[in-house]
Each structure stands twice: as C-alpha cells, then as structure tokens.
Simulated scan of single mutants.
Amino acid sequence: MTAKALLFRGFEELKDTRLSSSEVNDLLFTFYLKNACPQHLTWSLKKIVQLTPRLPEVIVPFKNARFLALRGDDKEKMEFSLADLPFLNPFDWISLFNILSREQKYQPLFDHVKRMLGYYILEVAKLDVEVAGVLDKVPLTVRRPPPKNLNKRKIGKIVNSNWSVAYNSKEGLENVKRIFFLLDKHLYRTPVLEHILHIINKLPSNTADDKTCINDMLRWYIEFRKRILAIIPKVFDRQTSEVKPEE
C-alpha cells in the first residue's frame, strides 16, 4: 500500500504546520501504534450491513472516531476506529464510503475514507490493466513471456508448476495461441479471465483441486475489479486534467 494511504490521517490536522515529512511520519506512526487494534481483531470477510458512527474523540494531534458495525447475515457486532482503517479488508472501505455518503452529518468521516480509498485505487491502477485504463494510466508491470513449448501446450490444460493455461485469442480472422499466468491475472481483461474459467472447467483432464484453485482466485479477482471500477466515478474528480482523489 502507498504511504499516502496512511498519511491521509494527517492531511487536515497538519496541513498548515511547518513539520517536516519525517516529523509527520513519526506522529502518524505513534497515532497508529497507540490506537489501532491488531489486524486479526478487525479484518473480516463479512460484509458490513449496518454502521453506527460514534462521536469523534480528540487524540493529540489527531481526531479519531469509533464505529459500531454489524457484519454478515448473523449481524456479528464489531467495533473499530479511523485508526484501524489501514488494517481492514479493502471491501470494508467501499462499504464505509457508501454508508457514510448517505448523510451530510458524516461528511468529515466520509472525507477521510474517500481520501484513503482514492490512494488505494491509485495503487491498484499500477497493477490492474482495466483500472489503469479508466484512470488514463499504464500498469507498471508487464506479463511474463510465453514458454518455449507453448505450441505443444493443450488448450485449457492447467500446468500447476507455474499455474498457467494455454488459450486461443481471436485476432482478426485467426486464432492465436496465448498463455495465461495466474500471477498475472491483473494484466488480463475480464473477458479473458472469464474465458479461462470456461476452458479449464470443461476440460476433463484438469484435476478438481487445480480447477478449484484457479476458479477461486479468478472469481474473487473479477468481483474485486468490478467493485473498484464501480466506485471510481464516486471517488475521483473526472473533470480535472490530473487524476487525483478529491479533497
């Protein structure tokens, strides 16, 4: 995660001071150290279905605020604060963003979450080809080169030594054999990922364990990408020439 995603806590409180970057970092480190819970107490895959913000509390030099959340179908109770945001599931940030945006009285808390979510999305854009395209950027990573034996590979067959799959790509009037690496999933567009799922699942020679591994990873990643793409228009000011989180 970018350091700016953590610096969001200091933008408003320290913006008019003459503190150096190292002094700001020290203050923020102390803030998180004293006020954040261990990650195993805050991380959860259960969706936040209800959120009750508490009154802000002043913790020099920053303000903090606590939340009571109900998660999942069983409405499990969980408390956390702004200091815990870096250690929550990123899907929680989207839930917080949507819930806090509904009422004007939560605007200061909403601004904090929006700023952090914006910098997180910019980090995703450094890796993900579709997110980068929406933000007019180019991913910083490139796909792995194809193996020398690509022409001998069977379409749809999973090679679990490097978790790769050969597939055909329609280019003009021809089908061109390509290679998919699971580790490079962020560099393939969603239709390609869905095509990979289709061809591996219909090939009987793929083992159930191998198919489960790729199915779980790709279905999760497709859903993750959809949520990020859906929230981008709400987080970023698309009217400016420079893409940055609104402040």
Rank of each mutant, 00 (worst) to 15 (best):
L45F: 02
K47M: 04
K75A: 08
E103L: 05
R54W: 14
P56N: 03
L117M: 02
V60Y: 14
L96R: 10
K105S: 05
L51D: 07
K114I: 05
D74N: 14
L117G: 07
S95E: 15
E123K: 10
D84Y: 02
K63Y: 10
F62E: 11
G118V: 10
L51H: 12
S81R: 00
L45P: 00
P108W: 07
D73I: 09
E79S: 10
Q104A: 15
P53V: 07
E123R: 06
F67E: 06
V60L: 06
P108H: 14
E76H: 11
L45A: 02
D74L: 13
K47S: 08
L68W: 10
S95Q: 10
F62H: 11
L70Q: 14
Q104W: 11
K63D: 05
R54K: 13
P56L: 05
F110N: 00
A65D: 06
D74H: 15
E76M: 09
L68E: 15
W93K: 05
I121R: 10
S95L: 00
D84V: 00
L109E: 14
L70P: 00
P86M: 05
M78P: 00
P53Q: 10
I48T: 13
F62Q: 11
N98R: 14
R115E: 11
D111Y: 07
S101C: 06
S44D: 09
P108K: 13
G118I: 11
G72Y: 12
A69W: 02
R115N: 04
Q50M: 09
V58P: 01
L88R: 08
P53S: 06
Q104I: 11
V60T: 10
S44E: 05
I48N: 04
A69C: 14
E103T: 04
I59N: 07
L117D: 06
L55V: 09
L88I: 13
I99W: 06
Q104T: 12
E57Q: 06
I59E: 09
Q107R: 13
Y120Q: 02
M78W: 00
L122D: 05
W43P: 08
V58T: 00
L122G: 05
N98I: 11
V58D: 01
K105F: 03
D74Q: 13
F67Q: 04
Q104R: 13
A69D: 10
F62G: 04
L88D: 01
A65T: 02
L68M: 11
I99M: 15
A125R: 02
F62Y: 15
P86V: 11
P56K: 03
L88T: 13
R54P: 02
K63S: 08
N98F: 03
Y106T: 12
A69V: 09
K75R: 14
K47G: 03
I59G: 03
R71Q: 15
K46W: 05
P61V: 06
A83T: 04
R71A: 08
A83D: 05
